[in-house]
Design a protein around this nucleic acid. Structure first.
Lengths: 367, 367
DNA sequence: CCTCGCGGTGCACAGCTGTGCAACAGGTGA
DNA sequence: TCACCTGTTGCACAGCTGTGCACCGCGAGG
């Protein structure tokens, strides 16, 4: 319209809205910075600079470009941008069964925090086979993802090797992993506290509802509970369902409760398991906490439901997600740091399924 | 090692493992097809062809290349590939609160199905503001995502316009959306059936536990239930919590039950709401289904828990995810088709919270 | 022995962006 | 008026891949 000092010989790709070409064979090309440059009467570099924060562009020029971009519906091509930087803003979340229990809340909190940070969270919902995990990581590397966050499972060492070779930051949540940055809750301290609180209430026949899954997170809690109970002179009966879910809780509950000398209190490594245990106990006629005390782990929302009122250790997904993002920041600033370990402890949320000694006193004195 | 007929002048980027360069300023360049070509003693095109299914490469050459790629840890750069094709394998899932209720299961099923299809699912966990939705869609367009799937919320028309202009397939789940492909369950038929089943059991004072959220999916169920009940001459009391969650159910339950002439049966638009209603009813001493019958919607796993045994309409997340993927296939094959609507109905899963007349007969005759 | 066909391979280009470098305009101080 | 400095802009290159086109070698058929 005004001056046309850009290269005219450049063969523009015809009219974008023409319906002559067969759309089926080739994907419609989208509007690029060159289109915007032509529309605004500036060079393509100027367009690039207008969309780069801190670049040197005159205010007037930037506005002109932005107007043109708006008209044409221009969107910076993140593929080209990433190609040049050898880095995309993708962050992979590797997780199995992301719909279940605490994992669902953690995954949701992570996606939210990552989006807030300007990242693009990719949800890799896959199995735990070495084959599947490596395949997932290859996909992420192919897209030059910024980092990979592992929410569940125990990746093989080849997995870490692959990430290391490609300079890909890795964050493991839950598992203690000396080769990579990891975040975990102090399940050991919590389990010990559970045992101590049971014993302090005079309970000496304890139960542990665990799982055969063999996850490090879970076995840590199991071992700590048993050790502390033994140290305090209490007897522990162990029952394990197959998975760390409601069905597993039902099974463990059956095994623990349908017995001559059933335990007076049960520590469940998981809220879901606790729900199963409680439901079975009630079905066979026991009162909670009258006949049986129960403590869980996670504090998923269902723990607060009237049907359960479960006393449990609270893992806060938002806090953990914030921690993971902070760790990612740090790792990107200082890639050569030794693996970092973040371990934080979990408060007990007291509800109806078990009231510790001192809490009861507190309640009584306050009334 | 053998012949070296490739261009020698090409300035290779020094030694990849050298620690002389400052890693902090620039991201480590990864191994490209050129490195593999040099290692295997072939041209770069050959490498590209070796990784392209159906391309013309001699078997011997391909094996040589694959060996070299393995040694170097080569991974095709999907950014460059996508840049050329103007299309990445990303698929966006736009969803709010992906950790809650049925949405969690649907989102998980979708990510699984998409990964199985070779896609990279991106979880956009964001609010429902027009601003937020548009921003999410711009991110996806910037990465040249293959498609966007909307799991919740009612995007503004500018959203559809943006997708249309960029040739981006859009699939809406739950909402009836004339402008785009959409999948929905026949909530209307289900709600009608619920009303009819209640009336068939001689119940004439009915309750509806809904929500103020105003989601089209929810209001469809509400309206259909009320209409059918009215048609059958039954009275309906309506109560609505704020959200379609447990807390909303508690509130609705209070409002419906703590009344002189409480309903004999309640249809809840959602399993979570049903749990809240049931818990409140039991807390004030009512038996289910003796004093109060309840029907829910979704059939989340909790509905099968012993504490609830909720009779509810089953939405199968796997089926819906498969449907969505099939729709995506079809849309990519034929981009110019008119918007497609997939609507399928949901079976009633009978459990303890309400047993329909015929089902009871069946049970009695079978014993 | 010549020609033809065909499978395989290399060259070169396109796709879109960020940025170093040089050029240029305009303002300012001497 | 002139030198100088600063802010702005354009050019050109790099980054990595897929693929059309041309070429080449080799086996087969006449």
């Amino acid at each position: 319209m005004t001056k046309e000092n850009f290269l005219e010989r450049q063969p523009m790709t015809a009219d974008r809205n023409s319906t002559t070409g067969d759309k089926t064979s080739d994907k419609l090309r989208s509007v690029s910075a060159l289109h915007v440059a032509r529309q605004a009467g500036v060079s393509r570099s100027a367009v690039s600079r207008a969309f780069t924060p801190g670049a040197s562009v005159a205010t007037e020029t930037r506005e002109k470009i932005m107007r043109a971009a708006e008209e044409l519906g221009y969107q910076v091509n993140d593929l080209a941008r990433g190609l040049l930087a050898n880095q995309s803003r993708l962050v992979g979340l590797v997780v199995t069964k992301p719909e279940v229990g605490f994992r669902a809340h953690l995954a949701a909190a992570l996606t939210k925090a990552l989006i807030h940070r300007g990242n693009v969270p990719v949800m890799i919902n896959t199995g735990q086979t070495e084959q599947e995990l490596i395949s997932a990581q290859r996909t992420l590397l192919g897209h030059r993802a910024e980092a990979t966050i592992i929410l569940s499972g125990s990746p093989p060492s080849s997995f870490f090797e692959l990430a290391r070779r490609n300079g890909q930051p890795l964050i493991v949540i839950g598992r203690s992993e000396p080769e990579a940055d990891h975040i975990q809750t102090d399940g050991s301290a919590a389990a010990k506290l559970a045992a101590a609180l049971f014993v302090a209430r005079g309970m000496t026949r304890l139960g542990l509802a665990g799982s055969l899954s063999g996850t490090p997170t879970i076995t840590e809690r199991e071992d700590a509970f048993c050790a502390e109970a033994a140290r305090l002179g209490a007897e522990v009966v162990i029952a394990r369902g197959r998975d760390t879910d409601y069905a597993g809780g039902l099974l463990a509950g059956k095994s623990l409760i349908d017995n001559r000398d059933r335990p007076q209190a049960i520590f469940c490594v998981n809220d879901l398991i606790a729900f199963g245990v409680m439901d079975h106990a009630r079905q066979v006629g026991f009162d909670i906490p009258g006949d049986l005390a129960v403590i869980g782990f996670d504090d998923v929302p269902e723990a607060g439901w009237l049907a359960y009122q479960l006393t449990t250790f609270r893992q806060d997904p938002e806090t953990m997600a914030a921690k993971a993002v902070a760790l990612l920041d740090l790792r990107q600033r200082q890639p050569d740091l030794a693996p970092i370990r973040e371990r934080f402890n979990v408060p007990l949320v007291v509800r109806g399924s078990f009231v510790p000694h001192d809490a009861e006193q507190l309640l009584r004195s306050s009334s």
